[in-house]
Amino acid sequence: MRNLIALVLVLLGHAGWAQQWEDRQVFNKAQSTMTLRIISSTDTDLFAPLIEAFILRNPDIAIEYLVTGTADIDRRFRKTPEAFDIAISSAMDLQFKLTNDGYARELEGVIHPDWAQWRQSLYAFTSEPAAIVINRAAFEGLPIPQSRQELIEALRARPEVFRGRIGTYDVRRSGLGYLFATQDARASETFWRLMEVMGGLDAELYCCSGEMIDDLTNGTIAVAYNVLGSYAKAREENQNVLEIVLPSDFPTTMMRTALVSKLSDNPTAAQRFIQFLLTFQSNPMGDARTLPALQERENGAERAAIALEPALMTFLDTLKRNKFLSEWENALIQE
């Protein structure tokens, strides 16, 4: 009996550990003198080339790369800010609030455009538009919708094809999904109409990009709304199956951001990493790059990415969030 309990405990422990992180990898353990703990929402395979390039130049630093969801990053980081050196996330609003609340460290001497950083603490290093990703098979012989409005019309035209075969983020669980949804809602009423249409077609809700793209690739769903195009593009086998559409009516572009924990034990090494990350992402010759580069802001607000400003905290307000989620649920979850 005692053995059995011990076994159960061990299994639970393993299960717990496995549940704790979507992925966990340590780079350069052998030669290093110190370890940087990076908590990130970016899949390891997308980030690994950058880490390897960094280690090549800084052999004394090992990197423990921990992957989890954006909302989870925020929760864990607030709980134990001393346990991580760097937080990288695609949920700009959560990252912003972490910085505003004083969890981030101000870095001296990191040169970065003003619009892509906040308080010398939060640094944006990619520009990634939200995309409509479509499985080509579902639109065989038909024009691919190029905007949200066209998507609404396409869905309405063939409800039998799309019922249960549309995917989008569960904004209650995904920080990035929530960010995209709130920014869409700000930009246009079309968003709510689309949500209602998707709700009427029993849309599938996902926590993470990875699963959504998996389902899209294998044909479980035909359309995914507000996915990161970069994730879809990153998988070579999808090149022929999937069509990535950047909505022409209005784009919602996210910038992935990084910050150094105020309580980091290795602030100098962490700053070196941030500096390297920014340089790597802005180097025009970066062939090894797997993440999209930080795009220069073009003139006109149309193509601008979501701005790093205090307004990002608006939708994180409890009252506002509750109101938004209830509207979203009303639209999307039609029992």
């Binding site: 910085t99 505003n100 003003d114 905290m313 608006t314 307000d317 009252l319 506002k320």
Partner: peptide, 21 residues
């Protein structure tokens, strides 16, 4: 009580020195 906080409320607090709010 419902508070639909306007996006502009915090947006107008943006400063060149990135002040916290």
């Amino acid at each position: 009580v419902e508070l639909d906080m306007p996006y502009s409320a915090f947006s107008m607090l943006s400063t060149s020195a990135d002040d916290r709010v």
